[in-house]
Design a protein around this nucleic acid. Sequence first.
DNA 1: GATTGCCAGATTGTCCGACAATCCTACAAC
DNA 2: GTTGTAGGATTGTCGGACAATCTGGCAATC
Lengths: 227, 227
Amino acid sequence: MTPAPDVFAGLQVDLSTTVDRVAEELRRAIFDGELESGTALREVALAGSLGVSRSTVREALALLVAEGLAVREPNRGVSVAIPDAEAVSDLCHARLVLEGAGVRAWAQADEAARAHVRERLAAYTGAVADGAGYRELNARHLAFHVALVELTGSPRLVAMQESLVRELRLALAQVERIRRNAHDQADTHAELVALLDAGRLDDALTFLDAHLAGAETAILAALALGA
Amino acid sequence: MTPAPDVFAGLQVDLSTTVDRVAEELRRAIFDGELESGTALREVALAGSLGVSRSTVREALALLVAEGLAVREPNRGVSVAIPDAEAVSDLCHARLVLEGAGVRAWAQADEAARAHVRERLAAYTGAVADGAGYRELNARHLAFHVALVELTGSPRLVAMQESLVRELRLALAQVERIRRNAHDQADTHAELVALLDAGRLDDALTFLDAHLAGAETAILAALALGA
DNA sequence: GATTGCCAGATTGTCCGACAATCCTACAAC
DNA sequence: GTTGTAGGATTGTCGGACAATCTGGCAATC
């Protein structure tokens, strides 16, 4: 065995397959609002547009379906998922469970995880201060909430949260296709972290509960407007 | 539009595709221990054995990978996932979060959900009394724990729990391949439900915590023996 | 008029065959 | 002991093919 030199850290090569890149492009198009929810994703058309084979498109579509970003109706094809009120409500409910677990774990959490939460908060507030676009704000905002779940130290819980956030981004894309409200909630999140730093976990939990409930009603209202 | 007669309730037809059936067969083989963890799932070999095309096998394998039952190494193929100690620990940690949320929701839960928990418990204890095989006991046992998460009323949390349970079944299959310990924990679970019925939620939570911690150490010990 | 039967087009589900790129192993060469 | 090379095995991707199914329209029927 080679005596493992650490000199090669930081080196990496793109191992992504064509299927991955197709799936990533579809995700981007969905999140950017280019693909309205409900749009039928025809295999031959996509294969033609993207310059890849139908088999490749099919595998990519299977990925999206597994992620919940698209739904497959047997013998009828795949279409971009339509986030209804019930789905949004469920998403926020599930988020409260996962993020609540992260908040509860604040004290026992790894110091690196706590630092990461603060970093994500700073990145979010910084983006707000810089007047970033609503897409970047969304990304920073949701990244912060993922960092909360990372406090649990559980890869699987984090993966679940990322899945929830993906679906939420789909819903947000539909909302923002109508009206682009660059919601500035940076102060709210700073307050949450302040509560955590002060060790007031119970207050932080109720605060998070209220925050998510507010987000739910806001999204539902926006969705109702669009429908 | 036809005046929608409800006469056709209870009618259903199998819409499953070949890919679904292949995936289901692979799952069965994994859970039944026929496919040891780490086994390479070669596409051509599977296609030949199952009498289907390689494309179909590839799609089925993609499903298993998405479920976490198998892992894909780029350009190297798919193999049955190997549940290491870290994974088992994480699984139990994540389960505590989800099932804990269910227990916390006991009071506000739908009465049907509470009844379902009791049903699953009865099915489990009944299976124990009938001297059922260890596979059926596992299924009943884990079904009970899924019912706990159903108390939250959140389809997404339930889906996550089912995903965790699938991975756990994989780990259990490896353990039981070595020594078939038909663990009778029916009494423990009955006690948990008794605490819930008595409204002692905090006690139920600590009880669940201890139960899952015990399960974790038991599985880890069995895994260590096998390795 | 509402229902049914039928037909053509579009799309999916599945199969087959092919080929380059990559990986693995072994073995030769330095 | 490292490097180079050759061969076989496997994956990743492609293109074409075909039956089964869905969709919509239109004729036939009661």
